[in-house]
């Protein structure tokens, strides 16, 4: 049911719902993280590293940032469409936003999976 709402058949609902689903996803990951800290709070660098050595936690972090970047990208896209009527300027700013979002996403991937955690 939700999947259908995210298709081109619902162009307005698709963007709106995607942003809300991203927000709910982020809230759930934060809740999980908070519960994890409640159960056993890391107290030094090595214990923080231990938390994120788990594949599941790293996947959750990547998922959190994917949701956050998608949420932000959709919002900024709307803002640019409203406030920058000059099409070439909007295109340049949108391209900068796209590169920034993509760069941040790749950085998160690199931190979670590329570094020797």
């Amino acid at each position: 049911m939700l999947i259908e709402l995210l298709t081109a058949k619902y162009p307005g609902m698709r963007r709106w719902l995607t942003q809300r689903l991203c927000a709910v996803s982020m809230a759930l990951v934060l809740l999980l993280f908070w519960l994890r800290l409640l159960v056993c709070a890391p107290h030094d660098y090595s214990s923080w590293v231990a938390v994120f050595s788990s594949l599941w936690w790293r996947l959750l972090v990547v998922w959190f940032f994917v949701c956050m970047l998608l949420h932000a990208w959709l919002g900024v896209r709307d803002v640019l469409r409203d406030y920058v009527p000059h099409l070439p300027s909007r295109g340049v700013i949108q391209a900068l936003v796209d590169v920034t979002v993509l760069g941040n996403g790749l950085a998160v991937l690199w931190i979670c999976f590329g570094m020797n955690v």
Binding site: Y10, P11, G12, M13, R15, D78
Partner: peptide, 12 residues
């Protein structure tokens, strides 16, 4: 009638 990206969903 309200489905396009602007008519309804431009409300933030």
């Amino acid at each position: 009638n309200l489905e396009d990206p602007y008519r309804l969903y431009r409300c933030h």
